[in-house]
Amino acid sequence: MKVVIDGELCHGHGRCYMLAPDVFEPDDRGHGVVTRAEVPDDLRKQAELAAANCPERAITVSE
């Protein structure tokens, strides 16, 4: 599964790496970064939780 953060929309709220630390981490500015090119299925729930909580709707989860 692929997880992408739209860098234009992300403004560094930080909810993604708080909720899904196995999928995201903060960069130096505190903006989220996806840590894996391919996200394993067992992390789907974490990734989707982060996407559902992003105040800027910047995260997409796809196959």
Partner: peptide, 23 residues
């Protein structure tokens, strides 16, 4: 609550600079 896209720190480019400190 599982889904909570709150904007207590504002949103967009001016999202609160100190939000991580406040938390």
């Amino acid at each position: 609550r599982e889904v909570n896209r709150h904007l207590a720190f504002g949103g967009g480019v001016h999202r609160c600079l100190g939000s991580h400190l406040a938390r």
